[in-house]
Nucleic acid binder design. Structure first.
Lengths: 332, 332
DNA sequence: AATTATTAAGAAAGCGCTTTCTTAAATGTG
DNA sequence: CACATTTAAGAAAGCGCTTTCTTAATAATT
C-alpha cells in the first residue's frame, strides 16, 4: 500500500498539500491538485483510515452493537441502519453482544477503541448507568427498544403496551370473550408491556382476567406448542389465543393443527411483530407490525443529526399497527 | 479516555513497561506488573485499538463483507463467523456490499484501510482478478460460496450440483416421472449448478428433459407463484415440482393452495436451502439442507489457521443433505 | 511606494500506541 | 576480582495520517 509520502513525492508537493486535496478543505491551487490527483491514481493510493482516525479522532464510522444477529428481526434493523448510514457516507461496524453483560461491555469498549464517532445499541445487559456514562464520555449513543432516563431523546422505542391493547381489542371486537394468553419472558420489558396492554383491553371491555387462561412462555416457537398444549388441558374454555410474539404463535398454530383443530374456526390466534414468517403460516397470521426497520432508520438519522450535523426530524416512539390476515375469525 | 502515558505515570514506570504488561510478551517484574495492573484498573484504562493497530499493523479483527444482511441465510452465516472468531478473541467488522461492484470494492478498501488482519467475503460482483490481487497484496482472504482459480484452498463452497441431483432423484425414487422445475437466475453459478444436478438425475433415470416443464425464476417468493401459475396453464402434465430455493417453493405452495390443489397428494414440491421457513410451511417442505452455518464456521477457522497460527482441519467442499418432510408424496 | 491584510503551501508536531535500540543492573565464569 | 553474558527496564523512533504553526508570495489599502 502506498502512503501519503509517496504520493507527495511523486506529485512534487508536501504531504500537507496531499492531505488538503484528500479532505477537500482549504483551497489548493488547481494545477497542484491535478498533479496530486494524478499521483493518487497512478499509485492507486487509498488513505489508511486507521492512521486517519488516530490523527483526527474521527472515523466516519459508527459502531453498532446488537444482542444477536441470527434472527430476521435484527437483520431487518441492521439493514436499515447500515443503509441509512451508507447513504450519508458513513461506515458501520457491527458487533454482537449476545445479551451478556461482559460481552456487551467488551463490545462497547471495542467500538469506542475503534474511534467510532457514535454508537447505536440494541442491548439488554448493560445498565442504565453504564449507558449514561458512555454517553457522557463523549461518545454519542442511540438506543433502540430501550428507554434510559436522562437520555430520552436518544431512545427509539416501540409502544408495546398499545400493541398488546390493539391485538386483544381486535379479538373482542370480533366477538371473543374467552381469550387465552401466552406471554413472553418477565425479564423483558417489552413482554411485560404487551401483557399490560392485553389486560387493559380486557378491563375496558369488562372482561375478567383469568389466570387459568395464562401461560408463561419465553418467546420461543416451542413455548407456543407447550403453552397451547397446557391451555387445552382440562377442557378450559377459550375461543381465541394471544401470543406475545409470532414465533410462539407459529408453535401454537402447529400444535393446534396437530390436535386436529380447524383454524381459525375452532381457535383464533393473534401474534406480535409481523415477522417474515407471519405470512407464511397457514392460516396466515394476524399480528401487530413491529416497525423495527423504521426504528433502525430513525436511530441512524438521530446519529446523523447529533454527530454529522444533519437535521432530520426525529420520532422517538413508534406505534405498532394491526395487520389482519386469516388467523382470526369473528364469533357469531 | 486515559492513555498509556497516564497509566505509566501513575504506576511510576515507562510506557514501554506498560505496553509490555498489556501485551504479556517479555517478562516484567512481578511488582511492577502489579503496580501497572493497579493503575490500569484505577484509571479504568482501555487501550486505544486504533493506535495499537497503527503501531503494530495488526488489529486482531477480521473484516467480513457479505452481499446482503436481510436474509436468514446471511444471518446464519454471520452468526457462525462471528462466534468462531470471538472464541479466538478476534473481532469481526461486518460490512455489506449489496452485490454491487462499486460498493463491494469500497467495502474491501474500507476493511483493508481498517487494518483488518484478514477478510472473509461472500461477494458476487468482484472479479476473480480483483480477489487474487487483494490476496497477493498481503491480506489473506477466505471466500464463501465461490471458487476462484488459483486460491482454491481459501474457498469454502457447497456442492450445489449434488444437491440438485439428490432432490430430483428423491422424486424419481418416489415414483415421479413428470417433474417440473423452477430455476434460479442464470447469472448465479449456484443456480446453474442446481439445475445441472437436476438434469443429471433425469438423464440417469432415462427421463427426457421437457422445456415445457421449465420456468426461469429469480429466487424470489413471487417467482414461485408466477412459475407455478405458468406451468399449470394448458393442462401440462406433471406430478412433482422442484424449486431451486425454498422461497420459490413457498410461493409455489401458496399458489397451489390458492388453485385448490391438495398438497402433497396432487403435487409434490421440493425446495433447496432448508431455510428457517421450510418447516413453517404447510405442508412442511422437503428440501436440501444448505450448511451455510458450518461453512461460515469453516471460513473463520481457515482464517484462524492462516493468520493466527491455529491448525484446524479444513474442509473446502460441503455436501447438501436431503431433509424429508411432508411436501413429497410417493406415487403409487 | 510603503505598509498591512490575505492567501497558499511547506515544516513540524502530535494522535496513542509498539518495538527496536540502549543502558544499567544482575549473574556467571575463570 | 576482572571480564563476559544475560536480563529488565527506559529512551526514542516510527506507524500514516491531520492540523497547527510558519513563512513566502500576492493582493489590497493608504
Amino acid at each position: 500500500m502506498a502512503t501519503i509520502y509517496e504520493v507527495a513525492k511523486l506529485a512534487g508537493v508536501s504531504v500537507s498539500t496531499v492531505s488538503r486535496v484528500l479532505n477537500g478543505r482549504s483551497t489548493v491551487n488547481q494545477q497542484l491538485k491535478a498533479k496530486v490527483d494524478n499521483a493518487i491514481s497512478l499509485l492507486s493510493y487509498s488513505p489508511n483510515s486507521v492512521a486517519r482516525s488516530l490523527a483526527s479522532s474521527r472515523s466516519n464510522s459508527v459502531g453498532i452493537l446488537v444482542s444477536e444477529i441470527n434472527s430476521h428481526f435484527f437483520c431487518n434493523m441492521l439493514t436499515a441502519v447500515e443503509l441509512t448510514l451508507r447513504q450519508a457516507n458513513k461506515h458501520s461496524i457491527i458487533t454482537v453482544g449476545h445479551n451478556d453483560l461482559e460481552q456487551e461491555q467488551e463490545g462497547v469498549d471495542f467500538l469506542i477503541g475503534r474511534n467510532c464517532d457514535a454508537l447505536i445499541l440494541h442491548v439488554e445487559a448493560l445498565t442504565d448507568d453504564m449507558l449514561r456514562k458512555v454517553n457522557r464520555d463523549n461518545t454519542p449513543i442511540a438506543l433502540i427498544n430501550r428507554v434510559v432516563p436522562g437520555m430520552e431523546e436518544a431512545c427509539i422505542s416501540l409502544d408495546n403496551e398499545l400493541g398488546g391493547y390493539l391485538g386483544t381489542r381486535h379479538l373482542i371486537e370480533s366477538g371473543h370473550t374467552k381469550i387465552a394468553y401466552i406471554a413472553g419472558p418477565t425479564s423483558k420489558v417489552d413482554a411485560n408491556q404487551r401483557l399490560a396492554g392485553h389486560k387493559r383491553a380486557l378491563k375496558e371491555a369488562g372482561l375478567k382476567i383469568d389466570q387459568n387462561l395464562f401461560y408463561q412462555g419465553n418467546y420461543l416457537e416451542s413455548d407456543g406448542v407447550d403453552g397451547l398444549t397446557e391451555l387445552l388441558k382440562d377442557n378450559k374454555e377459550f375461543t381465541a389465543l394471544v401470543c406475545a410474539n409470532d414465533w410462539m404463535a407459529s408453535g401454537a398454530i402447529t400444535c393446534a393443527r396437530d390436535m386436529g383443530l380447524d383454524l381459525p374456526k375452532d381457535l383464533s390466534i393473534i401474534g406480535y411483530d409481523n415477522d417474515l414468517l407471519a405470512h407464511l403460516l397457514y392460516p396466515q397470521l394476524t399480528t401487530l407490525h413491529n416497525p423495527i426497520y423504521d426504528m433502525g432508520e430513525m436511530a441512524a438519522k438521530y446519529i446523523l443529526n447529533t454527530v454529522y450535523k444533519e437535521s432530520n426530524p426525529i420520532k422517538n416512539l413508534f406505534g405498532p399497527e394491526l395487520i389482519t390476515r386469516n388467523s382470526v375469525s369473528p364469533l357469531p
